[in-house]
């Protein structure tokens, strides 16, 4: 079970969180023309990365905040975590 550092609450076990997928996906702006390809990329197309991956988790049984977690998908190592509005350098 992973041990995730919630930027709001501190170190918590994985069973307090729920997974939210790739954090680098950006929703197209509202009321903007979007091509089929762009929309498909947003809704469906994901890379299945091996290695460092920035992903979303929600601290669902804690502060309920969505956070960003930089995790190695092969080793499960967690490098850094960020608040939702934090820029990832």
């Amino acid at each position: 079970m992973l041990y995730i550092n919630c930027p709001h609450c501190g170190m918590r076990s994985q069973n307090e969180f729920s997974y939210g997928g790739d954090a680098s996906v950006k929703r197209p702006e509202l009321n903007k023309e979007v091509s089929d390809q762009e929309w498909d990329n947003f809704v469906y197309n994901r890379k299945s990365l091996r290695g460092k991956h920035l992903e979303l988790w929600q601290h669902i049984s804690g502060c309920r905040q969505w956070i960003k977690v930089e995790r190695d998908t092969a080793t499960h190592e967690i490098f850094r975590t960020f608040k939702a509005d934090e820029e990832v350098a």
Binding site: S18, G20, L56, Q58, I60, R64, Q65, W66, A84, D85
Partner: peptide, 12 residues
Amino acid sequence: SHLEYYLQLVWP
């Protein structure tokens, strides 16, 4: 969760 997702991440 759905509402929180949009409020916290998409349209803060």
